[in-house]
Structure formats: structure tokens, C-alpha cells
Design a protein around this nucleic acid. Structure first.
Lengths: 231, 231
DNA sequence: AAGTGGTCTAGACCACGAT
DNA sequence: TCGTGGTCTAGACCACTTT
């Protein structure tokens, strides 16, 4: 096929399959099209297709069975505290008012790319429990040109992204781990312990462009809950 | 070369390089022989050598740099759990063998209900890294009558549920938080820190009957990942 | 017998790093 | 310029599963 894109073909195959799996076109347990079929579809050789498939295997999205094919192993998430429309919607849904305190707002350079870095302590206006999360976002200026001029003390980041830039987040990849508290948590969380849940990840658009790098520290006031299908 | 062994050549190349790295023949930071060199050495094509090298990259032993070569990193192998797929699936997807040590196997009573409680330290047969997770499951005997008579040291709990009881899990609801280590983690994890990711949840069938209560402690060798579409 | 993934050959052109 | 890994082609034979 060879589109205009300069991206390697195997990445395009991988991304298409990844989207099809995440979107639910292929559900857990389903067999995806066979190698030969994918070769025809994309007009490439087996080596190229297998490169894509191997990457999906290593990411745990599919598993191969000799003589049968590749079936989907990824569970689909139905609900998560990370509700993807952001903290603002989550709080509004509870009938409360979200409030943010901007701790950092600056343009930084990471590997020859300029990003707006925003760190915010986020809480509920009606409650005096301290912050619920401390979020740090890195937004590439080449995509969000001029975003450094917004005041995110009074603006929802996701509203700006969706409405002003008309960019739609499509897919997220996160990793979770426990961390010890730091200066920020000491200052903004009302916490008994000194151990927190830490989330780090990337938000992508439909073409798997990186839209945002996120880092979130959750206070113990948040129940980090996820509902997932296992079929 | 093609020795008597029926093992694929790429596995032999991989194992030789792995030994050379682990034995210290190639130290951290060293460049290992180039692809072309390895091709000559083993008398195989690049595709075969690259298969071996890719596996070593995925295991964290080496890193590739375009135009330079492959150098030794000796990072600890991390295993990824994606969206809470089971332990068995995760290990099998990596081409390894799951192994369990049963720590507790007893019938307990919770609120007038009898449950089989199984606690297992779970690891990978091929590795000597200690356990990766410590799982505790509570299975209601009114649904899984007689399940207390299985030996889960050698049986997959998931297989028994699906095949012998013909019960299909449909949905899982869980929450995550950080915990400090305990006697079990001290004994079964090979860990530097004393903080772990803890998952607690319930597995339901299609009619929302409780099938299983799960509690899992993840060692720091586990990378807990979440992938999801946003829409 | 037909279809599937697993392994492997023998090339090719490219972008990048060292020289 | 030359060596390196990154991508890709166009085949081959095998073992396994399904029909």
C-alpha cells in the first residue's frame, strides 16, 4: 500500500490491529485475521506482518497458537477512575466543584521537542480534605500551539484540548506503581500514610500520535477502581 | 552449523549470548559482536540472528543503537500485566512456564458462607527471581462444590473453573492501592523496597453472581499496565 | 488436503555513526 | 567511505490444527 506516511509499514499494521482490538472490533478470545490474510490486505510480506504481530504479542494484546492463529488476550476496560474526560468531569459528575492549584506552568524541552509542563494539585471546592491528586501533564507545543497562554487554574485542560484544539484523545497506556510521598504530597495531601499510587502514561490520538504524557499521584482519598470484562 | 540438537538455531544463538552476558564475558556497557559477525559465526542469515537479538532486547539484557551495535544493559526482566489478565496467560504469552506454591488451602466461613481459600506464591519456572505475585482467592463452595479437593500446585485454577465446573467469568471489578510488605512478601519476593501494588477485587459471572474474591500483591518485577480506548 | 503459525534462506536499500 | 542496525522482499520447508 505504501501511503504518503514515512512510518514503517509494520508500525502501521500494528497500530491498525491495536485500534481494532481496543475499539472492540476483535474481542477477547476472537481470532484476528491470519498472517496470509494480513499480507494480502496490506500488500506486504510475512516478515513485515510478523514484526507487527510480535510486537502485539509482547504487549500482551494477542497470543499465537500454532496451526490456529492469533487470538486476542486483552481484557476490555469498561470503567475506570481515570475516566478520560479528566478530573473535571469526574468531580462534576458527583455534583461537586473541581478546583485546581497550578504548581508549575512552564515550557520545557525534552529530546528536541518543546512541551508545556503543567503540574496541578486538584481538589474539590466543597471539601476541606486537601488535594485528591497531583497531576503533571506534558503537552507537545507542535500539536498544541499556543496552549502555554491558557490559565489552567480556571480552565479544564481537556475542554481546551477537545473544544479549542478539536483534538480527540483516542487511546491511553498507563503503568501503575506505589511510591513514597514527596514535598508535594506532604504539602497538598491530608494523609496519614506516606505511600501513594502513582500513574504514568501516554495519551494517543487515533493515528497513535502522542498527545500528552501524564503523571498522577493519587491520594488515599481516591478509590482507584477499575471494571473490566474477562471474556 | 546445525548441531544434533533439534532446537531452533535462533534459540541456540540466544542462549549462547545469554550465557556470555550472564557469565560476564560481555560486561555492562560492552558491545556484543555485530549481526554480520554473528551470522558468520553461526553460519545463519540475519533474520535468524535478529530473532535471537530481539528476544534478548525484550528480556532487558541488551539494547540496540542504530549505526553502532548492541550493548549490554542487564536490566532486570520485567513482566507486564495488562488490564489484569491472569498470571497464567501472562507467563504463557512470554513462552515461559507458570509455577505456583500453595501457601494456604483451607475452607473458611465468611458471613454464613463457606469458601475455599487458596493463597499461592506464583513464579516462573525458568527464572530464579522469586515470586512475582502472591494471590489469595476465595471461592464459594455453594458454586464450586468439591473444589477443595483439587491440588492447585499442579492445576490451573482458571482451567478447573472453566472446564470442570463449566463456569465462565464475565467481569471483574477491582481496586488498586499501595501496601507495605508483610511476612509473605519478605519470604517470597526478591525485593529491594518494601512497598507493593495491591489489588483487591471480585470476579462475577454474566448474572452478576460472585464467583471469586481475589487479592493480589504484585512484586516490583511486575509492570502493571493499563491500555484502553478513550471512547 | 488445506490452512495456520514457526523457522530459515538470500538477498535488497536505507539512515546513522565512526573514520 | 564503510560498518552498523532498521526495514522489507520473495521465496522455502516444517509441524500443527481443522475439515
Amino acid at each position: 500500500m505504501k501511503t504518503r506516511s514515512d512510518k514503517p509499514v509494520y508500525l502501521q499494521v500494528e497500530e491498525n490491529l491495536r485500534s481494532d482490538i481496543l475499539s472492540g472490533k476483535y474481542k477477547k478470545g476472537d481470532y484476528i485475521p491470519a498472517e496470509a490474510q494480513l499480507c494480502k490486505e496490506y500488500d506486504v510480506t510475512r516478515a513485515t506482518v510478523r514484526n507487527a504481530l510480535t510486537r502485539l504479542i509482547n504487549d500482551g494484546l494477542i497470543t499465537s497458537v500454532k496451526g490456529k492463529g492469533y487470538y486476542v488476550t486483552l481484557n476490555k476496560i469498561k470503567y475506570s477512575v481515570w475516566n478520560f474526560s479528566g478530573f473535571t468531569d469526574m468531580v462534576l459528575a458527583k455534583g461537586r466543584t473541581p478546583k485546581s492549584k497550578v504548581l508549575v506552568h512552564e515550557v520545557v524541552q525534552i529530546e528536541d521537542e518543546e512541551y508545556l509542563c503543567i503540574k496541578r494539585a486538584r481538589c474539590i471546592a466543597e471539601e476541606e480534605n486537601g488535594a485528591l491528586t497531583i497531576d503533571t501533564s506534558f503537552l507537545p507545543l507542535k500539536i498544541f500551539n499556543g496552549i502555554e497562554n491558557y490559565d489552567f487554574e480556571n480552565e479544564s485542560l481537556y475542554r481546551v484540548i477537545k473544544e479549542d484544539y478539536e483534538i480527540v484523545p483516542y487511546e491511553v497506556e498507563f503503568s501503575l506503581k506505589p511510591i513514597v510521598g514527596n514535598q508535594d504530597t506532604d504539602e497538598y495531601f491530608v494523609s496519614e500514610g506516606n505511600m501513594f499510587l502513582y500513574l504514568e502514561g501516554v495519551v494517543y490520538d487515533k493515528d497513535r500520535n502522542e498527545l500528552e504524557i501524564v503523571k498522577v499521584i493519587y491520594s488515599e482519598l481516591i478509590d482507584f477502581k477499575i471494571v473490566s470484562s474477562v471474556i
